[in-house]
Simulated assay, not measured.
Amino acid sequence: MTTPIGEKIRTLRKQKGFTLDRLAELAESSKSYIWELENKDPPRPSADKISKIAMALDVTPDYLLTDAVAVEDATDTAFFRKYRTMDPSTKEKIRKMLDLMGGDE
């Protein structure tokens, strides 16, 4: 029996072209654990596991755990989280790329 969290993980994993093995590697988990999350109704996973899976899928843990967050919002939040930790020269390159793409409109 698939759960909403399992369906979200599977959908995002496939959109990114990740195998179960690849997502497990990125989330520091096992393939069988990811499969179980996608396909069964396991006990609620730990916050640490959800956080690592969300980070690997470029969304927020809130997106995986609730119905209230749109994937676009979760993806943007995950991007901003990464952006905040970038060095200043990388941030400047991203801002320049955005300007070239017409991102100020």
Rank of each mutant, 00 (worst) to 15 (best):
A27P: 07
I50Y: 04
R44L: 05
L12D: 08
E7Y: 00
A56R: 04
E28K: 12
R84N: 15
L100V: 09
L37Y: 05
L65Q: 15
D67S: 08
S46K: 02
T90P: 01
D48N: 12
T3N: 00
I34N: 11
D67Q: 15
D21V: 06
L100I: 08
P61Q: 12
K31V: 08
P45D: 13
P43Y: 11
G102D: 07
R84Y: 13
E25H: 10
Y33E: 14
R84C: 04
D41I: 03
D73K: 00
F79P: 04
K96E: 05
I50M: 09
L57Y: 07
I53C: 00
I9N: 04
R44C: 05
L65K: 14
S46D: 07
I34L: 06
K31C: 05
D41H: 03
S51E: 02
A74G: 07
I5G: 08
I9G: 03
K16E: 14
A47T: 12
I94P: 07
I50P: 04
K93L: 12
A74H: 02
L12V: 01
I53E: 03
K91S: 04
D41K: 08
L23R: 05
D41E: 10
G17M: 05
D73R: 01
P42C: 10
R44Y: 08
Q15A: 10
L26F: 06
F79D: 03
F80M: 13
T77Y: 03
V71D: 06
A27R: 13
D67Y: 04
T75H: 12
P43M: 06
R95L: 08
D67E: 15
A24H: 09
L100G: 10
A47C: 10
P88N: 06
M101P: 09
K52Q: 07
S32T: 10
S46Y: 02
A68H: 05
D76K: 14
D21A: 10
S32M: 08
I50N: 04
R22V: 09
L20E: 14
I9F: 00
P43L: 05
L26K: 12
R22C: 03
M97V: 04
M97Y: 10
T77F: 01
R10V: 02
Y33M: 12
K40H: 15
I9M: 01
K52E: 01
T85Y: 09
E105Q: 15
F80S: 10
D62H: 11
P45Q: 11
L64G: 13
D48P: 00
K16D: 01
K31T: 14
R84V: 02
A24T: 06
E28Q: 10
K14F: 08
K82S: 15
V71S: 11
A24E: 08
T3E: 00
S51T: 00
L12W: 05
L23T: 09
T3H: 00
S89L: 11
Y63I: 00
I53Q: 06
E28S: 14
L23Q: 11
K52W: 00
V59N: 11
I34M: 03
D104A: 07
I34Y: 10
L37R: 11
A54H: 06
G6Q: 01
L98C: 06
N39Y: 12
R81C: 02
R13S: 04
D58N: 14
T85E: 15
E25P: 02
L23H: 07
S51K: 02
L100C: 11
G102W: 05
T77N: 10
T77M: 11
Y83E: 14
